[in-house]
């Protein structure tokens, strides 16, 4: 199966591991012999700020996903997905962590978040990935749980869980490997 292009936007808050997620995805793509480019936000957005990472696979050149072209949006925190509506289309599948991180400026109603996203995206899967991460690993593994969910979704592009497991083994040092493999599988399982 040849895939022309897969665009994945990972949204989250500083410290949630959006960049690590992108590294796993990139290596999974490499396992499949695909070209891949990622783009991350650094600098001022680092501490407690919003973080977005773009992952583009296939026949692509530019680091950022063009507007209206995301295949997947993985939102590690609920409200963060709203900021990236410009990348979504009716073909976009969102995986949304229902866990919230509330800034001082307040927080919108969860139903309202969903309603707005439903207006732009084709499909939304809402899961409390943080609860799953707490159960099988540690809350810090929320990003890996969500990577597992995405792995399931990416089967339609020919990806296999194995690709993500191999990628994960490359990235994490020995002592964190098992716990993250558990998180990955739990996320994958949650989508079945």
């Amino acid at each position: 199966m040849t895939v022309k292009e897969i665009n994945i936007l990972i949204a989250g808050v500083g410290g949630q591991g959006a960049i690590t997620t992108s590294s796993i995805l990139a290596r999974a793509a490499m396992e499949r012999g695909m070209n891949v480019i990622t783009a991350e936000t650094h600098g001022m957005a680092q501490r407690g700020g919003s973080v977005e990472v773009h992952v583009r696979m296939g026949d692509v050149y530019a680091p950022l996903i063009p507007l209206g072209s995301a295949t997947f949006v993985v939102s590690l925190e609920a409200v963060e997905a709203l900021r990236y509506a410009a990348y979504m289309t009716e073909k976009t599948a969102i995986i949304l962590n229902s866990k919230t991180i509330r800034p001082r400026a307040g927080y919108p109603d969860f139903e309202e978040i969903l309603k707005r996203l439903e207006g732009v995206a084709g499909e939304i899967t809402v899961v409390n990935a943080t609860t799953i991460a707490e159960k099988v690993a540690v809350p810090q593994a929320t990003n890996v749980v969500m990577t597992g969910m995405l792995a399931k979704k990416m089967e339609r592009f020919g990806f296999e869980l194995q690709n993500f497991e191999d990628a994960l083994r490359e990235i994490f040092p020995d002592k964190l490997r098992d716990i993250n493999l558990r998180a990955l599988k739990a996320g994958y399982g949650a989508m079945e």
């Binding site: 407690g48 507007l67 919108p108």
Partner: peptide
């Protein structure tokens, strides 16, 4: 159109300024 629509959708997202 995509930009305008997105701005409207994001309008309820609270800012997370660097602190």
């Amino acid at each position: 159109l995509i930009r305008r629509r997105a701005e409207e959708i994001a309008s309820i997202a609270p800012p997370r300024p660097p602190v």
